[in-house]
Design a protein around this nucleic acid. Structure first.
Lengths: 234, 234
DNA sequence: AATCTTAGCGTATTTTTTACGCTAAGATTG
DNA sequence: CAATCTTAGCGTAAAAAATACGCTAAGATT
């Protein structure tokens, strides 16, 4: 595939587990006969290929690097600082792995949210908590932080929370996600009251299992009903 | 200046007058000894230069093409369809005016809002109503429509309306902008009630003049006070 | 059997939103 | 110059939404 050495795409994939928001990182691939120096972790991303649309590039890259398929990616920003490909050893690595003469690269950034559990992810990928990221290659820390800002903004209006939850979930799980991502606390009794009024969250005739307290009902999200009125959850 | 032939910036500048939202367009410059064919109007924009940041490129371009200075530009999207530089005669025009071998160009789009009145704008610029744009060069119609979507989303949360109003304005003018841009109707009595509760809108000891009805008080926006609580207007 | 944790429903109060009545000020009209 | 027209500007009442918090229930743990 003919790479365009001036433009790249990067994907910030969020997931949620153990009460914290995580980001999918990949280990930088090794170059033969070349000592791996510089930063070890990066976002899934690559140069786009010549005749490829940006969105297509992003989804393709994500699949190639992580195994993730059919993920909706949202373009949220572009990063074009002429000095962003620092330090020199990291740039050198990019030149060797891409095989093209890379100089300045403007990168188009995408983010998405997925359920960590049911994602068939290749090796060399790591789910890392967002709030204590290690130093990543190039300006990838910055790219993640900007993605987080965009995520928080969208989170109140759109039903993004269900992307992070399993198909069947308890109201407690739902509340936890809101509290954790928006960094707020909610009164669970009032939270549930609101939920009850929404017709797009339907209780199943099932309960959670293996919890050491009263098991809660499982709910599911009815996207079809949601799209009829789009009332936000909170 | 050394142009980068792969990346450009485009600016969608919104203004408001006579009750409608307008966009700033410029006439395509003529190329010597070359018949001007294709589309006549375009957004202010150009290829970025090699060692220039994207935001810097955008503000510089805007100043060069329209005379506008110190305008806050918001990056909102990137357009990278490999086929976006159609039709051939428009691409040919771009090649001649830029003087570089242009093939595929990914463009980074920005938008802003300004008061039409106090903007010292060069000739060859045209304020055109957004709701009935003529056909523009390349994918510029699409770029404007996306900017409009982003504008509407931001309009509810942020005090963008004051960018479109003169320093002193009446509540009627304020209401008109909301109604027109968000495409809603507001009860003016309830609207005013809300306004009265906001401490960042202060009435001046002045009234509007030369209107053929009861003159309204003039108000001003106190940005400093706004930033203390950021309560949205509606 | 007592205790602990979270589920789950309810009621009372406050705050916000919505609907709409009414007077006031100035320009216009016959 | 009085009647009329338009928009400004204040208010009240009802409806809806948000908040605070009491209480019982179900299952696991001790």
């Amino acid at each position: 595939m003919n790479l365009n050495p001036h433009i790249s795409v990067d994907c910030v994939i969020f997931g949620f587990s153990e009460g914290t928001l995580k980001v999918l990182l990949i280990e930088r691939e090794k170059v033969k006969g070349h000592q791996l120096r510089g930063h070890r972790l990066k976002l899934p991303g690559s140069l786009i290929s010549e005749q490829e649309d940006l969105d297509t590039s992003a989804t393709r890259t994500l699949t190639e690097l992580t195994g993730l398929k059919d993920i909706f990616l949202k373009q949220y920003a572009v990063f074009g600082d002429p000095q962003r490909l620092k330090p020199p050893e990291d740039l050198e690595w990019l030149r060797r792995t891409s095989g093209v003469k890379v100089d300045r690269v403007v990168t188009v950034a995408y983010y998405s949210l997925i359920k960590i559990s049911d994602s068939a992810i290749t090796e060399k990928t790591i789910w890392h908590p967002v709030d204590k990221l290690p130093e990543l290659i190039f300006d990838h820390n910055h790219i993640v932080m900007e993605a987080l800002l965009n995520l928080r903004n969208e989170f109140r209006d759109k039903p993004l929370c269900f992307e992070l939850l399993p198909k069947k979930f308890t109201l407690r799980q739902l509340q936890d996600i809101f509290e954790s991502i928006l960094n707020i606390t909610l009164d669970s009794r009032n939270f549930r009251k609101k939920i009850r009024k929404l017709n797009y969250l339907t209780a199943l005739p099932e309960k959670e299992k293996n919890v050491n307290h009263k098991p809660a009902k499982l709910y599911k999200f009815d996207r079809h009903r949601y799209e009829k009125n789009e009332t936000p959850l909170i």
